[in-house]
Design a protein around this nucleic acid. Sequence first.
DNA 1: CGATTTCCCTGGCCGC
DNA 2: TGCGGCCAGGGAAATC
Length: 279
Amino acid sequence: MPELPEVETIRRALAPELAGRTFTGGWGHPSAKFVGAPDAVGTTVRTVGRRGKYLLVDLTADGSDHPTGQLVVHLGMSGVLALAPPTAAPSERRPTDRHVRAWWTLDDGRTLVFNDVRRFGRLAVVPYGEHRSLATLANLGPEPFDPRFTPQVLRDGIAATSRTIKTALLSQRIVAGLGNIYADEALWRAGIDPRRRTGLGIERSVGLHRSIIDVLEEALTQGGTTLRDYRTLDGSTGNNQHRLQVYGRGGSACLRCGATLRTTVIDARTTTWCVGCQR
DNA sequence: CGATTTCCCTGGCCGC
DNA sequence: TGCGGCCAGGGAAATC
């Protein structure tokens, strides 16, 4: 379940490999989520960026420095990107794994492969910066590490919705990049009840703001959290799964106050929190 | 129009 | 061993 730290880890590995490479061929699974993959063929990669959980591969069709298009990739729940080495015969390049949803051959002979067992991922090739077809991306909140994400922005965003604070954080509209794992971790660290529907005072907003940044930063330092499918570009796992303090620990003791962590469902999302110290 | 619900997917796990 | 049932969950479409 790649969230911001996982996607950023992949981006950092992918960017130097793809920059300057031209897509010489491509294929997409017939599902609408992947079928557009070949639209990138013939373009050259300028940079590999990221917004929230979206990878944004800037493309140029005319060889100039100015991107003309963008390959947008969302890894969903189980999406994995890998670079396959060149094979002797071009006809043997096509990946044969059962769950490959898209692939692109590169002008250096390698193949970029998008594997996604559960097909919750998606991709699109769009004119540069044209995100109207991707509603969540088009309405994405600020990057958590961007100075424009402030305690006040967080506070205002929470105050503007009647949804629970957990659901508000997952909406991607207040701040980009949080998924179920890091939302639970940040709320625990800030001592805030995920079911809360009322606004936060400025002091608690400062605390949650800090917690969100810290949780994501630490996970990034660890190369992300691998629970099931997540792998970085070279196939290795992250290390942050050993540092989770609430996610997946329902029924165990809270590491802060010792109370038993409770797991419930909030808006169809499994949520673990501490009834003892999250208010 | 914002909020809520439904749907998309399949490997892994559980119980019988 | 085999198998039905259930769970995980981000985002978009459908519905309220």
